[in-house]
Amino acid sequence: MAVPSDTAKGWIWLSLVVLLLFLGVWALFALTSKTFPSPAAVARESWFFLSRPFYDGGPNDKGIAILTAYSLARLCTGFLAGSVVAILLGVILGLNQTLFKALNPYIQMLKAISPIAWMPLLLYSVKDSGWAALLVVFMASLWPTLANTAFGVSNIKADYLNIANILQMKPLTKVCKVILPAAGPTIVAGLKISMGSAWVAIVPAEALLGSLGLGYFVWNEWNNLSLASVIFAILIIGVVGVLIDNLFSRLAGGLAYVD
């Protein structure tokens, strides 16, 4: 990076100061409240779980790595299915302005609904909590990608499409060689938002449905009123969320193109 080294250092220092300040306030609060766990207590609890990540104590008690894997598997499956459907629909809508305009109000409305709100309906229709949790992730990842894809495709420079027509490309070739690459960055931006909202939705979905995963862990520890474990789970959820987001930023960087 071209940033001067002292500025870079300053940035890190500031970040550390914020962290220390936060821990200090937290520790003070824990001291005064007596029942709220201190940072040290959370650290001890975290170590307990982190030191046995693949522990298996039965169907209701699994190590944190196994639970994270459950959540990630659910996330990936629901997200992949949601994304494929969203991109397909998005391309169709993006290429057909009338259809896009007609359906856009509905898409905007559906986008605004929390995926968790669908849960009772989904559970009632599919009658299986595993599938319901998967469908919540599916719903969460659908709308942002759909909206972005349609927007990206409808804003592709007319020149590109004209050239494709002149070259007499078949429709499928046109989609693969021109449309998707041209709308790529917008689509990836949509995917990133989708992934974020899917990750946000998965925790309450698992907690409400009792499906194994990080959400289940939060609920199981809350049932024991163990706040230290709940805080540990919150940290894990945050860290995994940041890692996923980073992965997508890298992907987006790889897909950027110059006119």
């Binding site: 766990p37 975290s46 104590g57 169907p59 009123l225």
Partner: peptide
């Protein structure tokens, strides 16, 4: 759970064990 030995291998809960099942 099928393997009972695994179950009893588990060490005591650390940290705020006072309020958590050990």
């Amino acid at each position: 759970m099928t393997d009972k030995t695994k179950n009893s291998d588990r060490p005591a809960a650390g940290g705020t064990a006072d309020s958590a099942a050990t």
